[in-house]
Design a protein around this nucleic acid. Sequence first.
DNA 1: TATTCGATCCAT
DNA 2: TGGATCGAATAC
Length: 205
Amino acid sequence: MANYPWLRIPASAVDQAARELLGWQLTANGVTVRVTEVEAYSGLGQDPASHAHRGVTGRNEVMFGPAGMLYVYQIYGMHFCANVVCGEAGVASAVLLRAGEVVEGLDTARARRPAAKNDRDLAAGPAKLMQVLALDRRANGTSVVDGTGPATLRPPPTPVPAGDIAAGPRVGVTAAHDVPWRFWIAGDPTVSAYRRHTARPRNAK
DNA sequence: TATTCGATCCAT
DNA sequence: TGGATCGAATAC
């Protein structure tokens, strides 16, 4: 089993764990993706953008478990996104896998993403990444570090230099726009396009 | 039990 | 820029 230094990063430093996860390779169902973009979510109760902000619910309970588990949730009734749970058990810190580069199983990946116009768009978004790996809610609560789950995370062949990591506000979140907890590999073409959350019209009073 | 709305993607 | 589409969270 590989060595996973980010497993030991405390939940209070989940942004550090997010940086470390860049460049790691996630393999599932015949496809391998190199992680190029992530977002950190704090479990300390101070992060209004986190699904765990209001405490334990049926959806987010794996976030409160041990590090190395996948927290998979469905969004907009049709897409799935995955987080790697980080930090000590009991604190719901996690890192959202936002985008990646397909480095193995290219043909399989293309077949699973007919809407992709080119190869760098195959996993250029959190739900696209899940589609390429053919993962869904069944992966929720499974481990990516001990080989027991459908997905396995492996160390980068060559580490990402700290100077190559860029940071900015998280995508799509309705709160905490000022927190620069989105990290990506600078200049990588597979990083997803930034788009501010479009607020839906509120009921007029 | 009822209603609201989203850590997105795609075509327009 | 807006529509798809549905389950979890929250309001009642």
